[in-house]
């Protein structure tokens, strides 16, 4: 486990570079053009991040977050989920930047290595923005009836959310 976490990132970069050289790609030109597109997407999310981090900070400071956490406590206690993670579980399938803002808020208040921080990390890393993905893929092809897609996708999301809690609380990740 230690090995995987320490070596996965460098291995990834190593394989990409070696393969690039093997295929005689101009790796530096590819890198800079890719980094430029990253710059664009990073800039593009700034407006929504400003809006969402404002909303989430206000939500926490006004005491709303605490009210929701208390209301959800009977349910979250049952599965040993820290109540601070309820907003993340609710927002994760809806918006990528909103969940990024919530995770940042959790890291700031509890630290990334706390129980809350680790569950939030695993939840964020193992689930996707379901509603957005369904809208983009089916919307672009003009599909109106998505049939069972949403049910199946949300079942997968719920599994990811519950498993991230269980892995930290019962399996010591």
């Amino acid at each position: 486990m230690e090995l995987i976490s320490a070596y996965s990132v460098p291995c990834f970069i190593f394989i990409f570079l070696i393969y690039g050289f093997a295929k005689k790609t101009d790796v530096y030109a590819s890198f800079t053009s890719g980094a430029k597109s990253g710059l664009e997407s990073a800039f593009n999310i700034i407006p929504s991040l400003i809006g969402l981090m404002t909303a989430i900070s206000m939500f926490r400071e006004s005491g709303c977050l605490e009210l929701i956490s208390r209301a959800a406590a009977p349910l979250t206690n049952l599965i040993h989920m820290p109540s601070e993670l309820v907003p993340l579980g609710l927002l994760r399938p809806v918006s990528g930047s909103a969940s990024l803002a919530v995770v940042t808020d959790i890291f700031k208040n509890f630290g990334p290595d706390s129980t809350q921080g680790r569950i939030a990390s695993i939840m964020m890393g193992s689930t996707e923005t379901t509603f957005y993905t369904v809208a983009v893929y089916f919307g672009s092809a003009g599909i109106k009836n998505v049939r069972h897609t949403l049910f199946a996708a949300l079942a997968a999301d719920l599994t990811g959310i519950l498993m991230s809690v269980f892995l930290v609380q019962f399996f010591g990740f």
Partner: peptide
Amino acid sequence: EAVNLSISLLGIMCLWTGISKIGEDAG
């Protein structure tokens, strides 16, 4: 904070999209 977060993530995000592009261009 949103601006700070975006700035602090900017470099590493570009690094990763750059590395990905190498793999993409190499096939």
